[in-house]
Amino acid sequence: MTDLTMAQAVAEAAKYIGAGVAMGIGAIGPGIGEGHIGQGAMEAMGRQPEMVGTITARMLLSQAVAESTGLYSLLIAFMILLF
């Protein structure tokens, strides 16, 4: 750690900042999307309580699809951090 030049130190710091930013901003989209899906599912469940099983399964499916962008950013963050 001691024998880093200034440029190397800046690059190291930028790596951590970049990983954090990538993960943080990347998590906003899926969060909002999953929230919307959950809202819709809850409203549907309130309207039709007899369909709870089906709606829960579909909700998990669409949340898994919506979550994928967040996982891309997780991957990018790992790649920034580790390499």
């Binding site: 898994a64 699809v65 979550e67 994928s68 996982l71 891309y72 991957l75 790992f78």
Partner: peptide
């Protein structure tokens, strides 16, 4: 998107 969804879930989750 099809492949990276699964890969991100499994590999990213693993790490």
């Amino acid at each position: 998107s099809h492949s990276l969804r699964l890969f991100g879930n499994i590999a990213g989750g693993g790490i």
